[in-house]
Write a protein that binds this DNA or RNA. Structure first.
Lengths: 337, 337
DNA sequence: CTGTTAGCGCGTTCAA
DNA sequence: TTGAACGCGCTAACAG
């Protein structure tokens, strides 16, 4: 073992081992039989020089990078951070590496991100699209780039995987109604996203099956972020007939709602009940402990990666759309005992 | 705009635009003047074919990938997830992309990760090393691969950036002593890490400047994870002279301690005070609200990326070790009013 | 102002 | 059982 020389290449190894580059390539990749003697010399030369194969050169020769591109909107949002962690874990179990870029949920930027990913010739793309007909998705479809859509469903032409939203949200309504609530408000996410519309549908569906009408005044957009949700709660509770229970469309909005309620000197669940989409780590240390619907982030991440690997292997495979079951986390903010 | 053809290359564009590949390259990279007419034809050809430059080929020609490799241990740990998010944000503002791999805090795996990163010829590496003299660090040093160490300091020969640990922890002790505590316990992180030893030193230093002796019985390893911390608290409180206050070495251990205390039917801060390293998002929704020392994750991430970019630009630059100031988050688990 | 051509480091026929 | 030589797509002298 010695200080690595400037730049060791396969040719150097070949010379040192007194064989051809072909042989070096074959022993390194175990891609055809090589007799013991030359093979040993190659390995020795590799060890001696500290040679590390150049996979960039390999990529250009094989036109495959063994890389998966992950395009997420707002990695800092807990649900996506969570997804990211599980995706990375699953990718790690394959032969692929992960190239990570945040799209900032901006369609124009998202297109640039996807173009960059393609320029880098990733073998496949994992993406949570900004909107249904985003230019980025058109780009991916046109080039036939292996793609799996996560979290936000946009088209059955892609493989897609995310949480089941409708029934999950309806479950929250069921529960609140059973506890006695009749005026339930929904603070929904960013308009136009499938997650938002599906959760809103679930809200309506839930009310409907209890014979309750959805009061438009009680359905308000929280734009998926904390501040808007905070504002929404203030408006909701200033209504002539304020809601007695709140459902929030994601965890950031749940936080916003909690803080708004505190500002209004209202106690959960005594004054207002609360239940939200997305769970929290250490939810048991919150006061009150929040009743939520938890996404199966781990399964979503695993499934997404597996679907992508399969699609890369077989581009003709019929696409699948998977809606994974959520888990109802019954705690105390819903007000039952 | 049409369906993209099988594989468009620069040669195709050249032919279509009736210029040489050189000219195509130059208009695309804006690397030398090209007259209006040919330039327009090139751009038209690019638009017509939907050509996307192959940066793998570019990399192999320029021997630079414009990629930064990020090697983190346990991405799922909150402090690292946090760092990751901020690092990605900063990388996004440069011309680099981010290749992400988890080392699982295992030295052997870490070496493989670093080798893989080098095989992919990343221009630089950001790493939170598993231990001081890890083989991976030797590998990086030997090849002269531009490297910035984050969070865990290992050697002044590298650029390094992380939070200031010693004084930060001492501050926690100061505070607890001022509130009247004399028997303070420290639940420390994984042995051998600089973060752990520095925080332990800070603990001792804090006691010392109040004329208090460090009782070995009250210094116990929580191995950086929740379960060990939980066990530690149980043992601590079973002592003949149990501590009246606890300091935890990171947020996971703080959670473990909180749960252990709940199991013991002890209330914070009435029965036992608690203060920990690492802050939590939405700490205001915890009960009790935790007094902590917050890492400047955003600054650490930004600084790390900036240091790395500078080192890539100038490998001869003298290395710098930066310890960034923490923020004391005074809330209520410390028991003062 | 633009083109010819030689690499970059590796995989892979094709031949021997 | 092994090697020579070409090609992957692009950049960069060098030449004109």
């Amino acid at each position: 073992m010695q200080m690595a020389v400037r730049k060791v290449t396969m040719a150097d190894i070949a010379k040192l081992a007194e064989v051809s580059v072909t042989t070096v390539s074959h022993v390194l990749n175990e891609t055809r039989f090589v007799a013991d003697e030359p093979r040993r010399r190659v390995l020795a030369a590799v060890a001696e020089t500290g040679y590390t194969p150049n996979s960039v050169a390999r990529s250009i020769a094989t036109s495959t990078t063994e890389t998966i591109g992950l395009a997420l909107p707002a990695m800092s949002k807990p649900a996506f951070t969570d997804l990211l962690v599980h995706i990375e874990a699953e990718v790690r179990s394959t032969r692929y590496s992960l190239l990570l870029i945040d799209t900032e949920d901006d369609p124009a930027r998202e297109l640039r991100v996807v173009q960059e990913l393609h320029a880098r010739r990733v073998d496949g793309v994992l993406i949570a699209p900004s909107k249904r007909r985003a230019p980025a998705m058109k780009f991916l479809a046109e080039r036939g780039i292996p793609t799996v859509v996560i979290d936000r469903f946009v088209s059955k032409k892609f493989d897609q995987v995310g949480v089941e939203n409708t029934e999950s949200t309806a479950t929250l309504v069921d529960h609140l109604v059973e506890v006695g609530h009749r005026r339930i408000a929904m603070i929904s996410g960013f308009p136009g996203l499938s997650t938002t519309s599906e959760r809103v549908s679930g809200f309506e569906k839930g009310l409907e099956r209890h014979g309750l009408a959805a009061d438009p005044q009680l359905m308000i957009s929280g734009h998926g972020d904390e501040q808007h949700a905070n504002d929404a709660v203030h408006r909701l509770l200033a209504l002539p007939g304020p809601p007695t229970a709140l459902i929030t469309g994601n965890n950031l909005m749940t936080i916003g709602a909690m803080r708004a309620l505190t500002e209004l000197d209202l106690e959960v669940p005594r004054d207002v009940a609360l239940a939200g989409f997305d769970d929290f780590p250490w939810a048991d240390l919150f006061r009150p402990r929040l009743t939520t619907v938890a996404q199966p982030s781990s399964e979503i991440g695993q499934t997404a990666v597996q679907l992508l690997v399969q699609r890369i292997a077989d581009p003709e495979r019929p696409p699948r759309t998977l809606r994974l079951a959520s888990r109802f986390m019954h705690r105390e903010s819903c007000g039952c005992r």
